[in-house]
C-alpha cells in the first residue's frame, strides 16, 4: 500500500550518506552540499512517480542532483574555469615547458581537481575517488563508456600537469594497480 513517495522517501533516508558524498563531490563545500541534498530530496519526493522501480535509484538521484547544481551555477553565474581545457589534444606525460610552469605554481591536488571542468571532475570523482567501474559511471551519467574514458584521461593528465605528478613517484608507492 505504499505510494511512490513512501518508497522514494525510504530510499532517500537509506542512502543519505551516499547522497551527501555525491553532493560534496559536486559542490566541494559542506554548506552547499547540504543545501543541494535538501533540494534534491525535495525534488525527488515531489516527482517520485517518475522514478521507475527496479532502475538504479542512485543514478536517478545523481542526475537530479547534478541538474540542480548545474542550474544553480548558471543562475548564480559562478561557474568555475570551464571547457577550454577539455579539448586539449592528447598530451602524453609532461613536456619540459610545462614542468617549469608546474613547478613554479604547483597547485595542491585538491585545488587542481577543483579547477577541472565539471564534466571531467565528475568522472574523476566517481572513478578514482568513489572507485566506480567505468561502466557504472557511464550508466549513471547516461554517456558512452568511451566518453567516460576520454574525459577521465584528460582529467588525469590535467591533474598531473597542474600538480607536477610525473608517474615517477608511483612506481614504488603504488604497486600493481588493481588488475583483475
Amino acid at each position: 500500500m505504499s505510494t511512490p513517495a513512501d518508497d522514494v522517501g525510504k530510499q532517500l533516508l537509506a542512502m543519505l550518506p551516499v547522497l551527501r558524498r555525491f553532493a560534496l563531490s559536486l559542490t566541494r563545500s559542506a554548506d552547499k552540499a547540504d543545501d543541494l541534498v535538501q533540494s534534491a530530496c525535495e525534488r525527488a519526493l515531489a516527482s517520485a512517480d517518475r522514478y521507475e522501480p527496479g532502475t538504479r535509484f542512485d543514478a536517478w538521484m545523481f542526475r537530479i542532483m547534478r541538474n540542480l547544481w548545474i542550474d544553480r551555477l548558471r543562475r548564480e553565474k559562478v561557474a568555475g574555469p570551464m571547457d577550454d581545457i577539455d579539448d586539449r589534444s592528447n598530451i602524453v606525460g609532461v613536456s619540459g615547458e610545462q614542468v617549469i610552469e608546474a613547478r613554479s605554481e604547483m597547485s595542491s591536488v585538491s585545488d587542481a581537481i577543483a579547477a577541472l571542468p565539471d564534466e571531467q571532475r565528475e568522472v574523476l570523482m566517481l572513478t578514482c575517488v568513489e572507485d566506480m567501474p567505468y561502466r557504472e559511471v557511464a550508466d549513471m551519467l547516461g554517456i558512452p563508456i568511451g566518453t567516460v574514458m576520454s574525459r577521465l584521461a584528460r582529467a588525469r593528465r590535467r591533474l598531473a600537469e597542474a600538480t607536477g605528478i610525473t608517474g615517477d613517484g608511483a612506481r614504488s608507492s603504488v604497486q600493481q594497480g588493481k588488475r583483475p
Partner: peptide
C-alpha cells in the same frame, strides 16, 4: 601507466 596510477592515488 604510473602517471595514471599516481593521479588516481593522489586524487
Amino acid at each position: 601507466v604510473a602517471l595514471f596510477m599516481e593521479t588516481r592515488a593522489r586524487a
